[in-house]
Structure formats: C-alpha cells, structure tokens
C-alpha cells in the first residue's frame, strides 16, 4: 500500500515495461494490424464486445472487453494522437468500466525498441490533470487559455551522439498576450523572476549569456548558466542548458560541456485572436543510467514553471 502511495505521489501514472522474446516488427504488427490486434487483445479470460481501430494519426479506436463469468465490462476509446512506425504510438484514452466512466482524460504511450532478448514494450498510462487544472485555475480569469499540453517526447528524431536517440520535453501554453507583450516575460530579468528563478541575469542577444538561480519546490537550489545561441525577437529564443553541474573528478570542463549540453528552444506564435502559443522544447537529454531522474526532474520543473508563466501572464492586471 505504501508503495502504491509513493507511486501515486510521484506521478499519477502507471508505467509497465516488459520484454517479449519476439522481433520488433511482429510485435508492432500485432498492435497495429486491427485483425491481429482483435485476436489477442481480449486474452484467454475475456471476450471482445467489439474492437475497432483506425490506425492513423487522428484515427479513432474503440476496444471493448467483457469478463464472461461475472459480466464486468471495460471499454477503452479514443484516438491515435501520434504514430511513429516501429517506434511508438500515443493514444488519448477514455474508459468506461461497467457502464460508468472511469477517470476520463488519460493518455497511453506505447514505445517499442529492440533489445538483445527481443523487444521491449514500454507502456505509460498517465492521467492528464493539466486540462482539469487549467479549468480550475482559469475560473476567475476567463482568459483565452485553451489547454496546456505536455508531451514527453520519446522519439528518436534527433539522432545525436553517434545515433544514440535523445529525448525531449515539449510543452505548449497559450497566453492572452501578443508576441511583443509576451517577449519581455522570456527575456527581461525582472519578468523572468516572476515565474521561474528567484535571481536572473540575461543578455538577450545571440552570443549573450544568462544565469538563473532558483529553489525548487522540494527545497533544492539550482544555478544554471550558458549562452543564448539564437534570438529573433519576438518569435524565437534558443539557449544552451547544462542540466548537470561540472564535476572536476569526472573529467575536464570541456568534455563535460560537450557531453552534458542540451538546448532550450522557445517559440512564440500568434493565434490571430489576441493570444499567442508559447512552445518550449528542451532537447538533447541522453538515455542512460542515472539520467532518468534528471530528465524527470526537468520535465516536472518545466511543467511547474510554464504553468507559472501562464498564470502570471494571464493575471497581469493583478500584477500591474
């Protein structure tokens, strides 16, 4: 029980990782060929109450199951949000258990990779609280916020460091400002400190430097600095980001800079309706031992701070 409590307090999500002794292509086909899928999805104990799958991005699925001995039913339905052939697919997931909705608004990400024993299947089933939270927080604001979408991007689009796939944090938020109004919130120290670090210096020119110092919700203090690598006001800001500290015992500073460097890309796009969409892409996190917690920490941190950014920019009447 305590273990489940720790899980739910770490993140309201279920992660199942399994290795099956079959080649990736056959595993992938079993999931994505609807005829094959319908054969195995119910398993030996359950029966199908109808399985449909339109396997393309945006296509709908509906997978119904029933346990004959007690009549319990479970129906999952939603859309294929993303499909990367032989790598992963992502489903929006609503479910109906015994005729009643069972926690709507989840996302299921399935990723596949070849390992020496066969194929590793990673299933991440997470509750998307942000949409709910948005509704909750925006009550008093009546702002143009539509959604805060959070994606943990596990794809291998970026093949860095000898083809080792890296992963990225992608966040999007809509704020009720024009791009020109938003821009200072990303580039002026006295604005940045209202949603992210307690102390900030930033020279928003290509080749300029920044330095942030802040304390996380868990009490840990962080100092990060680096170069601003590209600036196109008020649409684009790129900065390098070193997610770890240099440890002289591990090697030279130069080696560390090369190995640890990740990139933060800010993009601002106006919607044409008085608001703009701010995208944060933090790319270049490597896979490896001990790196998962760093990636997770950054994901959680950015979610928190981008939420803050939305709050301070949406409630700007209160601040001024």
């Amino acid at each position: 029980m305590r273990k489940d409590l720790d899980v739910v307090l770490a993140k309201p999500a279920v992660e199942v990782v399994r290795v099956v002794r079959f080649p990736l292509e056959r595993v992938w086909n079993a999931w994505t060929d609807p005829q094959k899928f319908a054969k195995w999805w119910p398993g030996p104990d359950l029966e199908s109450t109808g399985i449909t799958a339109d396997v393309r991005i945006g296509g709908e699925f509906s997978w119904g199951l029933r346990r004959p001995e007690n009549g319990n039913t479970y129906l999952a339905h939603g859309r294929y949000e993303d499909i990367v052939e032989h790598e992963r697919f992502v489903l929006s997931w609503d479910s109906i258990r015994n005729g009643e909705e069972y926690v709507s608004g989840a996302r299921v990400s399935l990723s596949f990779r070849t390992v020496s024993e066969g194929t590793e299947i990673r299933i991440l089933h997470e509750f998307l609280g942000e949409a709910e939270m948005c509704r909750h927080y925006s009550e008093g604001w009546a702002s143009a916020i539509e959604k805060l979408a959070v994606y943990l991007d596990l794809n291998g689009n970026l093949q860095e460091n000898l083809g080792e796939p890296s992963r990225a944090i992608l966040l999007q938020v809509e704020v009720p400002l024009s791009a020109a109004e938003l821009w200072p919130w990303l580039t002026k120290a006295d604005r940045i400190t209202q949603w992210f670090p307690q102390q900030a210096e930033l020279d928003a020119r290509s080749g300029g430097n920044y330095s942030f110092r802040w304390i996380r919700a868990n009490g840990s203090t962080h100092i990060r600095s680096g170069a601003i690598t590209a600036v196109e006001a008020p649409m684009l800001l790129d900065m390098e980001w070193f997610p770890t500290d240099w440890d002289p015992a591990q090697g030279s500073e130069q080696d560390w800079r090369e190995a640890a460097r990740t990139m933060v890309h800010w993009r601002i796009r106006e919607t044409g309706q008085g608001s703009c969409v701010v995208s944060l892409e933090h790319r270049g996190f490597q896979y490896g031992e001990g790196l998962d917690s760093m990636f997770k920490g950054h994901s959680e941190g950015w979610q928190e701070y981008v939420t803050n950014l939305r709050e301070v920019t949406s409630g700007r009447e209160d601040i001024r």
Binding site: V14, V20, F22, A30, W40
Partner: peptide, 20 residues
Amino acid sequence: WIAFYRGFWNARIDSLEDFL
C-alpha cells in the same frame, strides 16, 4: 486506479505473448 491498470497492462502483454 494504479493497481487496476498495472494488472490490466500486464495481462494484456501476457496475452500478446501467447498470441505471438
């Protein structure tokens, strides 16, 4: 909810293995 889905997904993968 967590326990339900942990059991659910493991059972599905068991079934997938049998099928393959």
